[in-house]
Write a protein that binds this DNA or RNA. Sequence first.
DNA 1: CGAAATGGATGACATTTGTCACGCCTTTTT
DNA 2: AAAAAGGCGTGACAAATGTCATCCATTTCG
Lengths: 218, 218
Amino acid sequence: MNPQQKESLRDNLKANRKTIRVVLAEDQGMVLGALAALLDIEGDISVIAQARNGDEALEAVLAHKPDVFITDIEMPHMSGLDVAAELKRRKTGIRVVIVTTFARSGYLRRALEAGASGYLLKDMPAKELADAVRRVHQGLRVIHPELATEAWGEMDPLTDRERQVLRLAGEGKPSGDIASELGLSDGTVRNYLSEAISKLGASNRVEAARIARNKGWL
Amino acid sequence: MNPQQKESLRDNLKANRKTIRVVLAEDQGMVLGALAALLDIEGDISVIAQARNGDEALEAVLAHKPDVFITDIEMPHMSGLDVAAELKRRKTGIRVVIVTTFARSGYLRRALEAGASGYLLKDMPAKELADAVRRVHQGLRVIHPELATEAWGEMDPLTDRERQVLRLAGEGKPSGDIASELGLSDGTVRNYLSEAISKLGASNRVEAARIARNKGWL
DNA sequence: CGAAATGGATGACATTTGTCACGCCTTTTT
DNA sequence: AAAAAGGCGTGACAAATGTCATCCATTTCG
């Protein structure tokens, strides 16, 4: 039995309940504070640290060793997925719950690959968050129902090059610029775009970029 | 003295404080619930109804006549700005606070035109929300500092047609499709796009759409 | 090793875009 | 009423884009 479990046990003796220690990361200050308030209402959950970007989050998690780490995906500098991956690499055993706006199968796949135990959408009723945290803390896995089905749906058909090129094209850069930015020739860029367009069933670069973005393939 | 003021007065006698009655609208269930939790912690603020889209919100506001109506902008069917405009049209006198992710001057301008008393970004520390609500309730105006400066900065240079055309072009539709969708000729569509591109200082339709979106001109 | 896949480049060609200079009606303004 | 401005269309042309077939090096793999 490890120290953490022992600690849980002690708390159980006192209050017949373990307090779940949580670190929370989310870049929008107001949402961060609000979620913390929401969780702190629950008697058995305690938010012991908050972070507004990936770096802070990683630091806080390593410093506090919480039971559960809840994080948004899109944050400055290091995404929540990156932090999750890093925690997996370090074998910290800390459970990770992703909470995000985006129902993109690509994100879910990456989250699971990074060892996340939960993937929830901000669409979900607020009440269910605490339950999800409890379930994850017990070692269960919680995936937002809407995604659980489709989940492993389709795989990203794009190659690295196609992804890079499509990303830039989606920002309105003309082929020539993209070419020099990536050290390729103009024709090659157009070839990759053509490939991507047909793979995605789009009819031009912009539509292709939109589709890819929506699937989380960027 | 109206009944509402009388009620406030009674509360004042009890707790030396008036309770500010709030209706909250936000499409992401989790954020909605979390914000409600955050506000309910404050002794002098009470969330009396929640809504997840513009229609529900309007209905709830008209039914409950709260002191302050807090709303996100981007919601299904009717945006927060639309609801604010409707409340102004009906001269309800209910104070409106916009809370959004987007620091777009166009949104701010539209919000003020719709009679909003507050425009806050979700970036803001959560603690300040309650204060903002109190200040707005007292009749003050609260604009997120970052925006207050730039605020009336630039005006939307686009005509209605240019806006429509640009919106569709930004989704990747080719000129021909846009033309038939709007009942225009192909050449005319390209003319509008050309105009928009030069007005916005862009170098193609995609970039133009990006710029317009960022300014909130869509 | 030889064969096949991979990443990149060319060249050619049809389409789509972006730009301009006009022309034609309605509204507005004066 | 004449003039100016707005909304829409045409035609023409250069530039950018999308598609293909083909070619050349590396890797990778049976």
